Simulated assay, not measured.
Amino acid sequence: MSIDPSSIPNFGGQPEQQPEGPTGPVLPDQDLVKQLLDQMELKYVVDEEGDLAAPWEQFRTYFMFRGEDEQAVFSVRTFYDRPHQIEEKTRLLESVDDWNRRTLWPKVYTHTHDDGTVRLIGEAQMLIGTGVDINHFVSSVVSWVRAAIEFDKWLAEQLGLEQQIDDAEDSGGDVE
């Protein structure tokens, strides 16, 4: 199964034409996601557990298949690497709740590590066990990737991290 390259939306808009692919439901797999990421010109790796991951500077997005038969699920999960202090968690939760109310995906939640740092995880899922329309699958994955990128920008703006990031880049330092 392959994807028509002209059907892949760029990050600035919608596809110019509809793909001409399979007419019935397809069972997506990792090879299909790799083709899609190639066509989106995104770099990716396969981790030790066999999951596909696309790394960005501030986060990593994983494309995972879990379950079997009718219960099979495709999940796009983004791990945001920016650490937040436990004292910031209330403000962070307020921002995340606002995002989750306003958007469909990714749904974002916090994870507090043993050292007291808080990190964010975004997730979107699709049941794929009985097959899905290829157009729906492609547009969903593209939208989920775009939304993962947008969330990181949005959060930096909400928390006032843009200036911190700009100042660190100007001074050649790291942002914590």
Rank of each mutant, 00 (worst) to 15 (best):
R91I: 06
L37H: 07
Q17E: 14
T78Y: 02
L52P: 01
T110K: 06
M126N: 01
A72C: 03
R60A: 08
Q35D: 13
P106G: 03
F79V: 15
G12L: 12
D47Y: 10
T110C: 15
Q163G: 07
M126T: 01
V96R: 00
A168Q: 04
A54R: 01
D97N: 13
G12I: 08
Q30A: 14
Q158H: 10
R91S: 15
D81W: 06
I121V: 12
D51Y: 05
D167F: 06
D170C: 06
T117F: 07
V118Y: 00
R119K: 12
V145Q: 02
H113N: 11
G129M: 03
A147L: 04
L120V: 04
E57I: 15
T117Q: 12
D152T: 09
L52M: 09
H84Q: 13
D167P: 02
D4L: 03
Q125I: 11
Q18E: 11
R102P: 02
F79I: 09
K34G: 04
F151T: 00
I128E: 00
M1A: 13
E87L: 13
P83M: 05
N100G: 04
S171D: 15
S139Q: 15
V45A: 09
E49G: 07
G122S: 05
L120I: 03
E70H: 10
L32D: 00
R91H: 14
S171K: 10
V26N: 00
G173D: 15
E48S: 06
D31Q: 15
P25S: 12
E57P: 04
T103R: 09
T110E: 08
G21R: 06
D115K: 11
K34L: 07
H113F: 08
V26A: 03
P15C: 05
A148F: 02
G12T: 13
P83G: 03
F63S: 00
G21V: 06
L92H: 03
D170I: 12
T23K: 12
I3V: 14
P106V: 04
D29R: 14
V96C: 02
E157W: 04
P83N: 06
V175Y: 06
D170P: 05
Q163I: 08
L127M: 12
D114H: 08
S171Y: 05
P25G: 10
G21S: 10
L32K: 00
T117M: 07
F63P: 01
E49P: 03
V132E: 01
D97I: 10
S75G: 13
V145C: 07
H136C: 08
R60L: 12
R60G: 04
W105M: 13
G160S: 10
E48F: 06
H113A: 14
S75A: 15
W56E: 11
L37D: 02
M126P: 00
D81L: 14
I3W: 01
D38G: 11
K89V: 10
V46G: 03
L37W: 05
A72M: 06
V73G: 01
I149P: 01
E49Q: 11
E57L: 15
N135V: 11
G172I: 09
Y80K: 03
I165H: 11
Q30I: 06
A53T: 07
E48C: 08
A156D: 05
F74K: 00
